[in-house]
């Protein structure tokens, strides 16, 4: 049963999500004492499932290509726990838990061993490409989540209606710090990941790959990412402007991800 632990993890993630949704809809506060043990347990099962896949595949890279959604989700959870440890806030969970749940669920529902479409996927360049890009994605995702939370908190302060669950969000300065740090940490990973990808593509396809939608979108995402980082760094963009920009960056990242399904050169699993 290769997916057993992953399915257990999905079950726990699902419970956490249901509880959080129920609490928020019922206008109650999400109790840390309830949610953290659940996602913690889920995280442990999740980690076990990834380790098991890696060991079973006998090669880290194969596991990466096999269960890429599960590994991205695990990275998001790890960042979530780092943020919790460093800043004592669970607010990002509002965005992290649903995404992690969806990613792990799709991973858990896949059957059988992967059929690798391209021999390329066995090269270690590919594995580093994927993991680096994932780290970049995680950084961008947390920057995006932080800027949305910042926006919500800023609106409530501006409209002078502090209180309710918004009142429980961490201070603006903390959100700003988390957002900026995840951008800064994510950027080098993203850049190196894209470089690794380009080297790969150059070797196997030559110059044609520049017209591929996946590549165009990835490049666009990287440019927006860099612009966002630059503006935050240089003129301290916060609030609405930062939120809009990081939404654009995140949207282009999602499109670049989705482009796997239309791209001619970037299909790693036969569908």
């Amino acid at each position: 049963m290769p997916h057993l632990w992953l399915r257990v993890a999905v079950l726990f993630y699902g419970c956490a999500l249901l509880y959080a949704l129920g609490a928020l809809l019922g206008r109650k506060t999400v109790a840390r004492g309830v949610i953290l043990p659940i996602v913690g347990t889920a995280g442990v099962f999740h980690l076990v499932s990834v380790l098991e896949t890696v060991l079973a595949a006998d090669h880290f890279g194969v596991a990466v290509t096999y269960q890429y959604q599960s590994i991205l989700a695990l990275l998001l959870m790890i960042v979530f726990f780092i943020v919790l440890w460093r800043y004592r806030t669970t607010s990002h969970g509002i965005f992290v838990f649903p995404v992690v749940f969806l990613l792990t669920m799709t991973a858990a529902m896949e059957h059988g061993a992967p059929e690798l479409f391209s021999p390329l996927l066995r090269s270690s360049w590919t594995y580093s490409h994927i993991v680096l890009i994932f780290l970049g994605y995680a950084g961008l995702f947390f920057a995006f989540a932080s800027s949305l939370l910042y926006l919500v908190q800023e609106r409530s302060l501006k409209s002078k209606s502090v209180g309710g669950w918004i009142g429980l969000l961490p201070p603006l300065a903390v959100m700003d710090d988390i957002g900026l740090r995840s951008l800064i940490l994510g950027f080098p990973f993203m850049t190196l990941g894209l470089i690794a990808g380009s080297v790969l593509a150059q070797e196997s396809y030559g110059a044609v790959y520049f017209r591929d939608p996946k590549i165009v979108l990835s490049l666009l995402m990287w440019l927006v990412y860099m612009f966002l980082l630059f503006m935050r760094w240089m003129s301290g963009w916060r609030g609405r402007r930062a939120a809009v920009l990081s939404s654009v960056a995140f949207l282009s990242a999602t499109l670049a991800w989705a482009a796997n399904y239309v791209s001619a050169v970037h299909r790693f699993v036969e569908r």
Binding site: Q153, L157, V162, G167, P170, P171, L172, A173, V174, D177
Partner: peptide, 9 residues
């Protein structure tokens, strides 16, 4: 309290 909501510490 409001100042802390904005500046943290």
């Amino acid at each position: 309290e409001l100042a802390k909501k904005i500046f943290g510490s």
